[in-house]
Design a protein around this nucleic acid. Structure first.
Length: 152
DNA sequence: GCCAACGTTGGC
DNA sequence: GCCAACGTTGGC
């Protein structure tokens, strides 16, 4: 089993949106970056743990955990011309973009902010903290996973 | 709102 | 296949 961190803007889709979903489960659509897609499609497996990260807000940080409940399948929003995620180069026969289903697991009693993550020496190698990292999905090691949750 | 760091696009 | 122009992300 692997661990991941997934970013989302709380204004658009925050952890409370996920909690409000039926069965606290939703599809993670809108990934339009090949690196992120490949990780999701090729490496993400049912049962993997995911840190829910709020980005583009004040402050940004980890707010909870999720679990992969359905492995990658075509992202239908890419085929919908009215969707902001529409991609005319994707098709039903040859889907370009994929998504997974995630289920809410826990909400932290407080946010572990980006600033705190940076201050924790155990997390110095985290991909999220590398300069210029913009990937919305990044792998997390088991050690990092526990180190972050221990900060709660 | 600025801007650094990328990723993508398209002309050649 | 190169690379300049452009678009996006996301912290600050």
């Amino acid at each position: 089993m692997k661990y991941w961190l997934m970013k989302s803007e709380p204004v658009t889709f925050g952890i409370d949106h996920l909690i409000a979903c039926p069965k606290k489960t939703d599809h993670w659509d809108g990934i339009r970056n090949y690196q992120a897609r490949n990780m999701m499609r090729d490496e993400m497996r049912k049962g993997d743990g995911i840190l829910f990260y709020h980005s583009n807000c004040k402050p940004p940080g980890v707010v909870g955990t999720m679990e992969v409940v359905k492995e990658a399948y075509p992202d239908h929003t890419a085929l919908d011309p009215t969707s902001p995620y529409y991609d005319p180069k994707s098709s039903e026969d040859n889907p370009r973009w994929f998504m997974v289903n995630v289920k809410f697991k826990t909400k932290l009693s407080r946010m572990i902010s980006l600033e705190e993550l940076k201050e924790n020496p155990a997390l110095s190698g985290m991909q999220l903290l590398k300069p210029g990292n913009r990937l919305s999905i990044t792998p997390v090691t088991e050690e990092q996973w526990h180190a972050i949750l221990d900060m709660e």
